[in-house]
C-alpha cells in the first residue's frame, strides 16, 4: 500500500491503494464507500445526503441515516430534514400528522 499523505486524497492522513483513505485528519469524518466488494475510505467535513456524522474521541464516522422517510439525520434517533411533502415531528417523518397535532405547512411540521 502506498501510505503517505502525498498520494492520499484531501483530508487524509494515511491511505492505501486498495482501500483509499484509512485514517482521516483529526475532526474530519471518514465515509466508507462501497465499490463492489471493495470499501474505499474518503474524508469529509460534512457527510453526504443519507448519512450523518458521529463524533467520538478516537474516530469520527459517517453513518447511514436509517430513519424512515428521512433525508438528513441529526442522530440515530432524530431526523433533521424529511423527504419532500412529509411533516416532521419530534425528529420523525409523517405523511400526515399524528392524532391531536395539526400541520404547520410553512415549516412542514406538526
Amino acid at each position: 500500500s502506498t501510505d503517505g499523505p502525498a498520494s492520499c486524497s484531501s483530508g487524509c492522513e494515511s491511505c492505501s491503494e486498495y482501500n483509499g483513505c484509512t485514517k482521516c485528519r483529526p475532526r474530519l469524518f471518514i465515509l466508507l464507500e462501497r465499490n463492489d466488494i471493495r470499501q474505499t475510505g474518503v474524508c469529509l467535513a460534512t457527510c453526504p445526503v443519507g448519512y450523518y456524522g458521529i463524533r467520538n474521541r478516537d474516530v469520527n464516522r459517517c453513518t447511514q441515516c436509517k430513519i424512515e422517510n428521512c433525508v438528513d439525520c441529526f442522530s440515530r434517533t432524530f431526523c433533521a430534514k424529511c423527504k419532500e411533502g412529509l411533516y416532521s415531528h419530534s425528529g420523525r417523518c409523517y405523511h400526515s400528522c399524528p392524532e391531536g397535532l395539526s400541520t404547520i405547512n410553512s415549516t412542514m411540521e406538526c
Binding site: 463524533r55 467520538n56 474521541r57 441529526f74 442522530s75 432524530f78 433533521a80 419530534s90 425528529g91
Partner: peptide
C-alpha cells in the same frame, strides 16, 4: 430548538 449536541 429540538436537537442540541454539546458533546466532546
Amino acid at each position: 430548538l429540538q436537537a442540541l449536541t454539546l458533546a466532546l
